[in-house]
């Protein structure tokens, strides 16, 4: 009997702590599948940021380092420099990367650190209870933007994938979404390509994934998925913003 669908080898059978409907779990599965396919898990070390992603080590049976909030790209830098033949990835949420950790992500990217960063953009701080993040959409109500985000006071949602793509050190910067099977397939390809960039020593790779937080958005899981399509994608367009095809470093 041939199995046509099974849990990836590099995803543990631990029940996740994610809320029902959250797409973090999909992102985890895709990363595990990519590690399976590329055969890299034995030499891969994961670095979760702080937030809902922090328990990464429960779900991936690989070595892991828990980084301080926002600092995963700096930890990954030290680790990759110490072990250039290992595959190092950071997994950050939007509070982690786009707020407290902007300095670390920009400079790791700008140095062209040969690491991979997975970035979950769900437009709120999830773990702490749905506060406004730099990625929160205009008009979006959160516990700390109860009247809706107003650009006059809180500025505009920050577009990380586009911003990072402007840096010379970046080999690959893309934004994908996790809200439909078609988009999940695209996300899988992006994750795989990001790892391949690192394997081929092309430089810094980042995959931004539009993700749901139905709990903090105060909507049903299904409605959350449609909100990605309806509200997030118009502001956060999907696509590849930078892709290095050869070692065309300056």
């Amino acid at each position: 009997m041939n199995a046509i669908f099974k849990r990836p080898d590099n995803l543990t059978d631990a029940a996740t702590h994610f809320c029902p409907g959250c797409t973090h779990g999909i992102a985890h599965r895709l990363i595990a599948e990519a590690m399976d396919e590329l055969g890299i898990a034995d030499r891969t070390i994961g670095i979760p940021g702080v937030g809902c992603c922090v328990f990464l080590y429960r779900y991936f049976p690989i070595d892991a380092l828990e980084a301080p909030h926002g600092r995963a790209p700096a930890c990954a830098t030290g680790m990759k420099r110490a072990q250039p033949d290992r595959i190092i990835f950071a997994y950050q949420g939007d509070g982690d990367m786009a707020a407290i950790g902007t300095s670390e992500i920009i400079h790791a990217a700008n140095r062209g650190e040969n690491i991979t960063v997975f970035f979950i953009n769900n437009s709120v701080y999830g773990m702490t209870g749905g506060q406004m993040a730099p990625t929160t959409l205009l008009g979006q109500q959160t516990t700390t933007s109860p009247f809706g985000r107003d650009f006059k006071s809180e500025g505009y949602p920050i577009k990380m994938a586009e911003m990072l793509a402007t840096l010379e050190g970046v080999a690959y910067s893309t934004r994908v979404s996790l809200h439909s099977p078609k988009h999940v397939n695209q996300a899988k390809k992006a994750i795989r390509k990001a790892f391949e960039m690192q394997i081929n020593e092309m430089g810094f790779s980042v995959v931004e994934m539009l993700s749901t937080c139905n709990t903090n958005w105060r909507v049903s899981p299904l409605e959350a998925l449609t909100m990605i399509e309806r509200e997030m994608i118009p502001y956060f367009p999907l696509g590849v913003f930078k892709e290095r095809t050869g070692k065309d470093f300056l």
């Binding site: 700096a74 420099r81 670390e104």
Partner: peptide, 16 residues
């Protein structure tokens, strides 16, 4: 880029 980054890079190398 900062002392914050410095100590976290130390952490990454040390963890290795």
């Amino acid at each position: 880029e900062s002392e914050i980054a410095s100590i976290n890079m130390v952490m990454g190398a040390s963890a290795s």
